[in-house]
Deep mutational scan, measured.
Amino acid sequence: DSWHDTVDGIELELHGADEELLKLAKELLKRGVSEEEVRRIIEELLK
């Protein structure tokens, strides 16, 4: 799946992010949310 590559990229960027955020990112990508949107959501949550 192409979203796996996206998640791997996000995981590299979010090496400090907790497991729950990564699960959320994967779930959003699986549901068709764009990579940009996922990054934006996670950045908001990390604030």
Rank of each mutant, 00 (worst) to 15 (best):
D1F: 00
D1R: 01
D1M: 01
D1S: 08
D1I: 07
D1K: 03
D1E: 12
D1Q: 05
S2W: 12
S2A: 10
S2V: 06
S2L: 09
S2H: 14
S2D: 11
S2P: 11
S2T: 12
S2N: 15
S2K: 09
S2F: 13
S2M: 13
W3N: 14
W3Q: 15
W3L: 14
W3Y: 12
W3S: 15
W3G: 15
W3V: 14
W3M: 15
W3R: 04
W3A: 15
H4L: 15
H4V: 10
H4P: 14
H4K: 12
H4I: 10
H4M: 09
H4E: 11
H4T: 11
H4C: 07
D5N: 04
D5Y: 00
D5L: 01
D5Q: 03
D5R: 00
D5V: 06
D5G: 07
D5E: 13
D5H: 02
D5S: 04
D5M: 01
T6L: 10
T6F: 10
T6I: 15
T6D: 09
T6K: 08
T6G: 15
T6Q: 11
V7Q: 09
V7T: 13
V7D: 07
V7R: 08
V7W: 05
V7L: 09
V7M: 12
V7K: 09
D8Y: 01
D8K: 09
D8V: 15
D8N: 14
D8I: 14
D8G: 13
D8L: 09
D8E: 12
D8R: 08
D8A: 15
G9E: 09
G9Y: 12
G9C: 10
G9S: 11
G9H: 14
G9V: 15
I10S: 14
I10N: 15
I10D: 11
I10E: 07
I10T: 11
I10F: 15
I10L: 15
I10V: 08
I10M: 15
I10R: 12
I10Y: 12
E11S: 14
E11P: 02
E11H: 15
E11D: 12
E11M: 07
E11F: 04
E11N: 12
E11A: 05
E11K: 10
E11L: 13
L12M: 11
L12Q: 13
L12I: 15
L12G: 11
L12Y: 01
E13I: 02
E13K: 00
E13N: 03
E13S: 01
E13T: 01
E13G: 04
E13M: 01
E13W: 01
E13D: 07
L14R: 06
L14Q: 07
L14C: 05
L14E: 06
L14N: 11
L14A: 08
L14D: 04
L14I: 15
L14K: 10
L14H: 07
H15W: 06
H15A: 13
H15Q: 11
H15M: 10
H15K: 10
H15S: 14
H15C: 06
H15V: 14
H15D: 09
H15N: 13
G16L: 13
G16D: 09
G16E: 09
G16R: 01
G16A: 06
G16T: 14
G16S: 07
G16W: 09
A17E: 06
A17Q: 07
A17M: 11
A17P: 04
A17H: 10
A17N: 06
A17F: 07
A17I: 13
D18H: 12
D18M: 13
D18N: 11
D18T: 15
D18W: 11
D18K: 06
D18F: 11
D18G: 13
D18Q: 10
D18I: 10
D18V: 11
E19D: 15
E19K: 06
E19Q: 05
E19H: 05
E19N: 06
E19P: 06
E19F: 03
E19C: 05
E19T: 04
E19V: 04
E20V: 07
E20Y: 06
E20F: 11
E20K: 07
E20P: 06
E20M: 08
E20C: 02
E20R: 03
E20Q: 07
E20L: 11
L21E: 02
L21W: 11
L21I: 13
L21Q: 05
L21Y: 06
L21M: 13
L21F: 06
L22V: 13
L22R: 12
L22C: 04
L22H: 12
L22E: 10
L22A: 08
K23R: 10
K23T: 10
K23N: 10
K23M: 11
K23V: 10
K23D: 07
K23F: 06
K23I: 12
K23P: 01
K23A: 13
K23C: 02
L24F: 10
L24S: 03
L24H: 09
L24Q: 04
L24D: 01
L24I: 08
L24T: 10
A25T: 02
A25Q: 03
A25K: 03
A25R: 02
A25P: 00
A25H: 02
A25M: 09
A25C: 01
A25E: 03
K26D: 10
K26N: 10
K26E: 13
K26Y: 04
K26R: 11
K26H: 08
K26A: 10
K26I: 14
K26L: 09
K26V: 09
K26T: 07
E27D: 14
E27G: 04
E27A: 05
E27S: 05
E27T: 05
E27W: 01
E27M: 01
E27C: 06
E27I: 05
E27N: 04
L28W: 01
L28F: 01
L28H: 01
L28D: 00
L28N: 00
L28M: 10
L28V: 01
L28I: 03
L28A: 02
L28Y: 02
L28P: 00
L28G: 00
L29D: 01
L29W: 00
L29N: 02
L29Y: 02
L29A: 04
L29V: 07
L29Q: 04
L29S: 02
L29F: 02
L29P: 00
L29K: 04
K30Q: 14
K30R: 08
K30F: 03
K30L: 14
K30D: 14
K30T: 08
K30Y: 02
R31I: 11
R31V: 11
R31P: 02
R31D: 08
R31C: 05
R31G: 12
R31Y: 05
R31N: 14
G32K: 01
G32M: 03
G32I: 01
G32E: 02
G32D: 02
G32N: 02
G32S: 02
G32F: 02
G32C: 03
G32Q: 02
V33E: 06
V33H: 15
V33A: 07
V33D: 02
V33F: 14
V33G: 03
V33Q: 03
V33R: 04
V33P: 00
V33M: 14
V33N: 05
V33C: 12
S34T: 14
S34W: 03
S34R: 07
S34K: 13
S34P: 13
S34Q: 08
S34A: 12
S34N: 14
S34Y: 04
E35D: 06
E35F: 12
E35R: 15
E35M: 15
E35W: 13
E35Q: 15
E35T: 14
E35I: 12
E35K: 15
E35G: 15
E35S: 15
E36F: 05
E36I: 14
E36G: 09
E36R: 07
E36L: 13
E37F: 03
E37A: 11
E37G: 06
E37S: 07
E37I: 13
E37L: 08
E37P: 00
E37Q: 10
E37M: 05
E37R: 06
E37K: 08
V38F: 03
V38L: 04
V38P: 00
V38M: 05
V38C: 02
V38A: 03
V38G: 01
V38Y: 02
R39G: 04
R39K: 12
R39A: 06
R39E: 03
R39N: 04
R39P: 01
R39H: 06
R39T: 07
R39M: 07
R39I: 11
R40W: 06
R40L: 10
R40H: 12
R40P: 00
R40A: 10
R40S: 08
R40E: 07
R40C: 02
R40T: 07
R40Q: 09
R40F: 06
R40V: 05
R40N: 05
I41T: 06
I41R: 04
I41M: 07
I41H: 04
I41G: 00
I41W: 06
I41F: 13
I41A: 04
I41Y: 08
I41E: 01
I41P: 00
I41L: 10
I41Q: 03
I41D: 00
I41N: 01
I42K: 00
I42R: 00
I42P: 00
I42S: 00
I42D: 00
I42E: 00
I42L: 09
I42W: 02
I42M: 06
E43N: 12
E43Y: 06
E43K: 14
E43D: 10
E43V: 08
E43S: 14
E43M: 14
E43L: 13
E43G: 14
E43A: 12
E43Q: 15
E44C: 12
E44H: 10
E44F: 05
E44G: 11
E44W: 04
E44K: 07
E44A: 14
E44D: 09
E44Q: 13
L45C: 05
L45H: 07
L45D: 00
L45Q: 05
L45A: 08
L45E: 03
L45I: 12
L45Y: 13
L45M: 13
L45F: 09
L46P: 01
L46F: 05
L46S: 05
L46W: 05
L46A: 06
L46D: 02
L46R: 09
L46Q: 08
K47W: 03
K47F: 04
K47M: 07
K47Y: 03
K47V: 12
K47Q: 10
K47G: 07
K47H: 13
K47L: 12
K47T: 10
